[in-house]
Design a protein around this nucleic acid. Structure first.
Lengths: 196, 196
DNA sequence: CTACTTACTTACTAATTAGTAAGTAAGTAG
DNA sequence: CTACTTACTTACTAATTAGTAAGTAAGTAG
């Protein structure tokens, strides 16, 4: 079997570091894991991580940059971009639900917001861009959704998008502190309000 | 002038530690300040802080316990408890707005949710209680508010309360990452939806 | 005046942190 | 075959971490 473009190659160390760092970030926070933690779990020496990501700033920035990259790809995917607005909204909900399923991970934004001022400047910049692009995408979805009658809400699409993303961020955090129930309750409430 | 019960005594070291720790927690996160930071800023030695709060766990738990204490007092204050529902909701908004005004502090819940799994167990317990009691209070406000026609929403008061608090938590986090605008936008949106 | 408590400081420890410098083994390019 | 690159390991450093033990000065209770 030749490795087609769709085949998953076993990830190299560089990727394994990034994957694990992202997992720890979303599960425990940015200031709660060290190069030693990563190294021990990956079976390499801490210096090997410094080889790929010279400083923790570089590593953190790489995590956010990759998520931004993923967001853009996801958003432009035909199976997402071509959906009717209400299903685009459901697709967004499904992303948050996936986080919930991965041992109640919070979203990237929710993981970094509290510690924001301790983050390296490039990470702050990337996170702002990430949140801005997601908000703009959702505002567009909401605008079209209301125009086509697929979604219902009052106020401007931009305001509703900002509010909605704050709610989803908070919903995953509430799930972490308590359990899955409040998250499901909030999603139910959002569907009740938004979907005709 | 004798010190009446309302007079503010100059805070003792114990209180100054707690005040500063709370400020740093809400501005930078729990894993982003140390006993050294506190000591330096207060002009005492780190060991003096260990004298009052033997471990950081104790200090963190004291912060959350005090906030829970404040919540109960605030909620039962005549000038809050005797208000009509819509004004009770506004009083809640005002609390979050105060956080915003204090150099864009996030709320206690938003400060601790991401790092929740790294927190000492007693802190986790106190934070759950804090959030549960706040949610229950708000659910009651919403229930009465809808019954009296002062507030408008669909779904159960409990679900709406959970959703609303998640939104407010997220709103302060969004303000931290960007600026005050998204917070004001979200509050405007909430008023538009809830107040008749 | 004495015993005791309170609120610290001084001096320290063991562990952990991010990060660096030098070495090395395996692979790749010409 | 040679020079070079990649992906590390070994060995280290300086700073910081939470925390402790012993001392001490000022205040309080009897």
């Amino acid at each position: 079997m030749s490795t087609s473009s769709a085949t998953k190659l076993p990830p190299d160390t560089r990727t394994r570091i990034l994957d694990l760092a992202e997992e720890l970030l979303l599960e425990r926070g940015f200031n709660a894991f060290s190069y030693q933690h990563l190294a021990k779990e990956l079976g390499v020496k801490p210096a090997a991580i410094h080889y790929h990501y010279p400083s923790k700033d570089d590593l953190g920035t790489a995590i956010v940059a990759r998520q931004l990259c993923r967001l853009r790809k996801w958003r432009d995917l035909p199976r997402v971009a071509d959906l009717p607005s209400n299903q685009q909204l459901e697709a967004l909900f499904a992303v948050y639900d996936t986080h919930l399923g991965h041992s109640r991970q919070v979203c990237l934004f929710g993981a970094l917001a509290a510690d924001f001022r301790t983050l390296p400047a490039p990470m702050q910049v990337e996170l702002r861009t990430f949140n801005r692009e997601l908000t703009e995408w959702l505002a567009q979805v909401l605008a079209v959704g209301r125009a086509t009658g697929a979604l219902r809400f009052v106020g401007s699409p931009a305001a509703k998008a900002t509010q909605l993303l704050s709610t989803l961020t908070g919903a995953l955090q509430t799930a972490r502190v308590h359990d899955e129930m409040p998250f499901q309750v909030i999603l139910g409430q959002l569907r009740l309000e938004l979907l005709s």
